[in-house]
Simulated assay, not measured.
Amino acid sequence: MQLKVDDVLQRMKVRCTNELTPIPTIYEEELVKLRTDDCNDDTQELVENIPTFPSCKNIMYNKRKKNLPVLPKTVDQINIDGIWTRTTKGDPFLLADDNTEGCMLIFSTQKNLTHLSAADIIYGDGTF
C-alpha cells in the first residue's frame, strides 16, 4: 500500500514541478482520479492512506519553488522574460517593460486592448 501512496505523491510532485495549476487543485485532482466508477476496497484504502493536504503541502510548494524565478529585492533586479511574457496560449502578454523612471510593466493581450478601446466607459482603480 505504501508503494501506491508514494506513487500518487510522486505524481503530485511532478505536476507541481511541471504545471502552474494551484497546488491545492493538483492535490484534489489526483485524489479525484483515484475515485473512479470502479472504486473498490483497495482504492478506498489507498485514498485513506494518502497524507492530508496540510501534512504534504510544504513538500509540494518546495517542488514548485525550484522552478519559479527568485523574487527580486530591488526594482533593478526585476527581469521578466521567457514564458512569463506570454499567455498560456503563447500570445504576447508583456506589452511594455519600462525602467526609465522606476519600473513600469504593462500586461495585456491585443484582444484585451481591442475590447478596451471599443468601450464607451473605462473605470480605473485608485492604484493606477
Rank of each mutant, 00 (worst) to 15 (best):
M60D: 05
T87W: 12
D98N: 14
S108E: 06
A119M: 12
T100K: 14
H115E: 07
F107W: 08
R86E: 06
A96W: 15
P24V: 06
G124F: 15
P22G: 09
D42E: 11
P72A: 07
T127H: 14
M104R: 01
K66N: 08
D6R: 00
N67E: 10
V8K: 00
E45K: 09
M12T: 02
R11N: 09
L9A: 03
N40G: 04
Q2W: 01
P92D: 04
P69E: 11
P72K: 02
I59S: 11
C39T: 09
R86L: 10
R64Q: 13
K73E: 13
T21H: 01
D37M: 13
T25W: 12
R11S: 05
E28I: 07
N79G: 03
M12H: 02
I50V: 04
R11E: 10
V75S: 14
E101Q: 15
C39H: 11
E48Y: 08
A96H: 15
N79Y: 09
K65R: 14
P69S: 07
V32H: 02
R64D: 11
G102I: 05
V5L: 02
M12E: 05
V70C: 12
T21R: 01
M60E: 02
Y123R: 09
V47K: 00
G124E: 15
R86P: 05
D125I: 06
Q10A: 04
L95C: 09
K13C: 04
L46C: 04
I78D: 12
V8W: 00
T25E: 14
L3C: 02
K65H: 10
G126Y: 11
L95F: 11
G102C: 07
M1S: 02
Q77R: 04
I122K: 14
Q10S: 09
C39V: 14
D76F: 07
T43D: 02
L46V: 04
V47S: 02
Q10H: 07
L3F: 06
A119C: 12
D91S: 05
R64H: 10
L105H: 01
L68Q: 09
V14N: 07
A118V: 07
T74S: 12
P72Q: 05
D98K: 06
T17E: 15
V5R: 04
L105P: 02
C16P: 10
E45Q: 11
D7M: 02
Q77P: 09
I78V: 13
N18R: 00
R15M: 03
F128P: 07
T74D: 13
P69W: 08
Y123Q: 10
L20S: 12
T74W: 05
T100W: 13
K73W: 09
V8Q: 02
T100F: 15
V14G: 06
T74M: 09
M104T: 14
L68N: 05
